[in-house]
Design a protein around this nucleic acid. Sequence first.
DNA 1: GTTAGCACTTAGGCATGTCGAGTGCTAACC
DNA 2: GGTTAGCACTCGACATGCCTAAGTGCTAAC
Lengths: 337, 337
Amino acid sequence: MSEPRKLEVLRAIVEDYVHSREPVGSKALVERHHLGVSSATIRNDMAALEDEGLITAPHTSAGRIPTDKGYRLFVDQISAVKPLSPAEKRAIQTLLEGSEDLDDVLDRTARLLSQLTNQVAVVQYPHLSRAVVRHIEFVLLAPRKVLIVLIADSGKVDQRVVDAGQDLSDDTLAALRTRFLTGLAGTPVAILPQHLSAVVAGCTPAERQAAVALGKGLEGLAHNSREDRMVMAGTANLARSNVDFPLSIGPVLEALEEQVVMLRLLSDMAQDPRGVAVSIGRENPYDGLAEASVVATGYGPDATAKVGILGPTRMDYPTTMAAVRAVARYLSRILGP
Amino acid sequence: MSEPRKLEVLRAIVEDYVHSREPVGSKALVERHHLGVSSATIRNDMAALEDEGLITAPHTSAGRIPTDKGYRLFVDQISAVKPLSPAEKRAIQTLLEGSEDLDDVLDRTARLLSQLTNQVAVVQYPHLSRAVVRHIEFVLLAPRKVLIVLIADSGKVDQRVVDAGQDLSDDTLAALRTRFLTGLAGTPVAILPQHLSAVVAGCTPAERQAAVALGKGLEGLAHNSREDRMVMAGTANLARSNVDFPLSIGPVLEALEEQVVMLRLLSDMAQDPRGVAVSIGRENPYDGLAEASVVATGYGPDATAKVGILGPTRMDYPTTMAAVRAVARYLSRILGP
DNA sequence: GTTAGCACTTAGGCATGTCGAGTGCTAACC
DNA sequence: GGTTAGCACTCGACATGCCTAAGTGCTAAC
C-alpha cells in the first residue's frame, strides 16, 4: 500500500465531498479520478485512512467523509492555494477603490469577500494603537456635555461624549483644547495615557475638574476604541449553502453576534507559513463553531487586524484561502500610506 | 351568530396559535377559553371567519391558523398593547444609560430590543438633516489627501477623505478651514449645499481647486451621511424560534443584509395612531419577507429615524409592540437634549 | 341562533418489504 | 507484498399499506 496514493485518495475524498456534499464511496472515487487501481484497492486505502482517524463513515453502508483531522492534513500538506481568476482580481480592485470613508471600505470588503467565497465574511476594525494623534477637537453640546473627537493620522476618527463635571464656556473649552492639542499632538495613541497627566497638571485650578474629565474621556477613546468592533456580511450564505443543513446555523449566528468571541478567535489564530490561518471544526475554542471552519489573515501595516471568513468545515479551502489572502492584500494597499 | 363573539374567537385563535405554533381546532378552543358555547357553535363562527378570509385551514382535517388579514384585524382592533413589566423597564434604563458614544447607544439598543422580543432588532441611524453644523475640521493626511470631519450639534460626527486636487500646506488648509467654518457654522446641514457656493466663491484663486474639492466632500457628507445605515442584532433568534421553520430564514437574512431594502421598508411604514407601525406578511413590499412581520416606530426629536423588529408573522404582537414603543421612548430621551 | 351527532377527510405514525450503495473479507493473482 | 475479483452482509432510503386521532361540515333537532 503506497503512502503517496493514500494521500491522493484523501485528497480525492475531500474534493469530491466538498463538491457533492455526499459521502463518497470507493467506486465513485475510481470513476471520477484516474487513480490507476481498482476500487478494492481503494477500499484498503480507505480502511487505513479511517484507522488513522482521517476519514469516517456516517453509517455502515455509506461512503466516507473527512474528519476535522482529515481536513487539517488536507489543508496543511495536500492542497495548493488556488490563484484567483483575473476577473475576480479586477472585481476586488474596482469595488474597493470606489470608497473613501473607512467604514465604507470595511463594509465593502466584507460584502466582497462574502460574495467571493459564498461564506460569511468578517472584518475587524484596524488597530489604532500604532497610530499617532493628529488632532483633538472638543465640542460643547450643552454647558456640561462635551463631545471629544480624536483624529489619528491614519484617518481614523473616534468620538465620545463626556460630562465635564462643571459648567464650561466656549472660551475655556477652547483653551483646554489648545492645551491638550499642544501636549498630545504627535503622540502615539498607545502611550497617550502616559502623557495625559502632564497636560492635566499644567491646567489652572479653574479648569482642573473639566481637564480631568476630558483626560479620562481621551484615555477611554484611546484604549477602548473601535478596534474591538467588526463588520460582517453574507450571513444569508449560511442559510443558502446549508439547505440540507449539516451545519446548524443557530449557534453560528450566536457566535457571530457575540463579537467578543469572534474577535478573540481571530486574534488567537496562528498564522500559517502561507500567510493564512485556518481553524477547523472542533479546533475552534467555541462550541457553537464545532461544525464550522474559520479562514483568516491579518491586514494593514502590522497585519494585526484580521479579515476572514467563516463557513462549514466542508468548504473549498484552496479557493477560500486564496480569496481571503487576496482581499487582505488589496485592503492593506488601500489603507496603506 | 354574534359579531362580538366572532372577534373573540379570532382573538383566541391568534393567541393560541402564537403560543402553541399549531393549528387550533374548535374543541381545544372551547376548552382553553371560557366562551360559554359549544364547539359546534365555534365551528360555525370559524367557518364564517374563514369565509371572510381571516383564518385558513392548512389541510382538511387540521385546525385553523390566522391569515395575514386576520393578524391585521387582530392588531388593529382586538389587541391592546401590553405594558412592560417593571423589571423590563429597569433593564432598558440601566442598559442604555451606561453608554456614551452614538454607535454604542445604537448597538446596545439593538441588542436590548432583540433580547426583549426574541426577534431580530433593527435600528436606523438618526437623521442628520435637521441638525446644525457645529464644527468642521480638515486634517491633512498626505499632501493632497484631506480628511474632512463634520460635527453636528446633535453630537453626530461624520467623516470622509477627499483628494484635494492640488498639493496643500498646513497653512493653506487652516485658512480654508476658517473660511468654511465662518461661512457654515450654524447652518442646518440640510441646506448646507446652498451656502457652499458662496464660501467657495470667496476663496483666492490659489485655493480655489482645493476649495471646490472640499466643498464637494462636505456636500457628500451632508447628503449621503450615515442616516442610511443601520444596526441590527438578534439574527440568531431567527434560527432559534424557527426550529420547525415555517419561516425560511434565508430570504429574511438576505433582506436584512440588503440594508437599502430594510431602510426603505422602515421609512414607508405608516404609523398607527398608537404610535407603532406594523407590516404583516405579504403586506411587505419585499418578497423575501412574505412570512415575516415588521414592527417599527420612529424615535428622536422628529421621529424620523426608525427602530423596530422583524420576526415571523406568527409573533406576539401586543408584547412586541410594547417593547418597541418603550425602547423608542427611552432612546429618544437618551439622545435628546 | 345554538347544539348534538355523525359521516367524511386527511396528516402522521408505524410496520413491512424492497432496492441499491457500499463495505469487509477471503482467496487468488502478479 | 501489494493488488484484484468476487461475494455475503449491512444498513439507509424509499415506497406501500394500514390505522388512528383530530378536526371539519352538514343535518336535524332544540
